[in-house]
Amino acid sequence: MLSMDILLVTILAAIGLSIIGIALGLILLGIDRRISARMQARIGPPLRQPFIDLKKLLSKENVIPENAIPSLFNAAPIVALASSIVVLLYLPIGSMMPILGGYGDLILVMYLLAVPALAMVAGGFASGSPYATVGAQREMVSMIAYELPLASIVIAVAWLLYSSGVADPFALTSIVANPIWSLVGPLGVVGLIILLLTFAWVSPAELSKIPFDTPEAETELAGGVLVEYSGKNLGLFTVAQGVKTLVMGGLAVAIFFPWNLSPLFGLTGYVALTVDAAFFFAKVILLMILSVTVIRTGLARFRITHVVTLFWVWLGVAGLFGLSLVILDSVLRGWF
């Protein structure tokens, strides 16, 4: 049983990390908008624009449509935000171990990642608008679609750790402690690169960004699942989107790029924590630009049928191919 002190520290740390996570998430959204604007030959909004938007949204009242189911409609944004923050608490940030590290593993994180999308589906169905209903149906379809490639990545990582004799292969702490690239031979590196690219395509889908923003599809569904949301509820969804962006970046860093700066310079204590956290955030920004900003700026929106084909056929095959390369690699190395 936990002692009161540790519980208190955990709660405080969780609150602190949530606030920092929300702020960093919003900054990420700002950076994304800025870079995307520069790619389109625009100046773009200032970096603090998401904060300005959020302030405005939070100062406005919620409008609940007549046909909506108010309880579900209002609960959806809270659930979405809460679940994305909880995922954040499971992520190792730099050299800081996750606050809730002892209470769950990668499988739990995968489930938690699905919760914001589920909340959006529930909120969409609850808002009683035909646009939101179509959007919610599409959100469900695309959720089912991108789970397969994501699952193949998780299995590959766990298999790798398991076959290398690491205890607790699904725990994020052990994934970070054993960078996967060091556990494989040349064949496995190819497999991991394929998996990394697959992950880069899953991230924008998780985040409902173009080309996978069919559930929101501004031009045909006018915002889809979010069409009836306004004011504070929409603000909460915006925050959840920011945190989710941070989480997806953080997950990619934890799985594929877990290295830290502090051992390189022999730093210790709080300095090491700060430097590693900053390095972590820099890696997240870079990954987000490459896998979210570039893709959403350089592609047209897919039809929902294209999304399903892409994830089930092309990326599904790519994920499984990467997984089999990784397994083949470890099997071959077992022989020689």
Binding site: I35, A37, R38, M39, Q40, A41, R42, I43, G44, V294, T297, G298, L299
Partner: peptide, 15 residues
């Protein structure tokens, strides 16, 4: 378009 946007990042915005 991907090539185009990478080139554009390093150019001045048109606005």
């Amino acid at each position: 378009m991907i090539r185009e946007i990478f080139a554009q990042v390093f150019k001045r915005p048109a606005t």
